[in-house]
Amino acid sequence: MDTTTSVRDQILDHAITSMMLRGYNGFSYRDLSTLVGVKTSSIHYYFPSKDDLVLEAVNVYSSGVMDALRTIDESLPADTKLSKYTMMFGKILSDCSQICLCGMLAADIESLPDNIRHAVQAFFRANESWLAKVLAQGAKEGTLAVNGKPENAARALYAAFQGSVLASRLFSTKARLEDVEASVKVTR
């Protein structure tokens, strides 16, 4: 057992990774107890139900992604911001074996309770909102091609990013992410 990280944090880390690899139904408390080196009753102490654990995992994951977005310098050109966003998605992919936690949960949405559904929807909306601002900036600068309203284009772009991680996983290549980014960049 890792003694530098709290048991609660280890449980969350392993749950997030497990869901990014196999989805909501792809792990159990027994799996986590083996990974963390604790009894399942210890997991229940921190997270009485799997839904409690998943909701906290979504909240932690979402906070981490939003924190990463806030580190992208506002003064950068829009195409550079989009490149940094693409690199962030590339880090999520790791070795092309896992996908975005909220993207994976979106596929399982029918089996999830409403509070988790709302948290996943909020994650999608936050990313789409950030992308809409970048696309609007890029349209003004002439660095990004935007057809229609930036909000609509952002939803389509975010869907393309989520789809690209699935295809990247399928084909074991991050090139699919780069294809999404290239689809909106203005070539000079």
Rank of each mutant, 00 (worst) to 15 (best):
V184M: 09
L144T: 00
L12H: 02
L53Q: 12
A145G: 11
L157I: 14
V38Q: 05
D13K: 05
S63M: 05
Q162D: 14
S172W: 00
V134Q: 09
E56R: 07
V134S: 02
T5P: 09
Y46Q: 12
A119E: 07
A175C: 01
F124W: 12
D51A: 08
D52Y: 00
Q121V: 00
T34N: 01
M66W: 09
V38S: 00
D52P: 04
D67P: 01
F171T: 14
A106L: 11
V7G: 08
A106G: 04
D108K: 08
T3A: 14
W130D: 13
T34L: 08
D9V: 00
Q137D: 13
Y45P: 01
I92Y: 03
E56N: 14
A159W: 07
K91P: 02
Q121G: 03
R125I: 00
A182F: 12
R169T: 05
V38T: 05
C102L: 01
K50R: 13
K81G: 00
L131G: 01
D13H: 01
S41A: 11
V186T: 02
A153F: 07
Q162G: 06
T143M: 10
L55S: 09
N115C: 12
L32E: 06
K39L: 10
T4I: 00
Y61K: 11
S6C: 06
L105E: 07
T86Y: 03
L101E: 04
E128L: 02
V65W: 13
E128M: 08
A15V: 04
Y24F: 15
E56A: 15
A156D: 10
S6I: 00
T5V: 03
V146K: 02
S18F: 04
M88G: 13
I116L: 11
L53F: 00
H14T: 08
D108L: 03
Q98G: 06
D13P: 01
Y24E: 15
G138M: 09
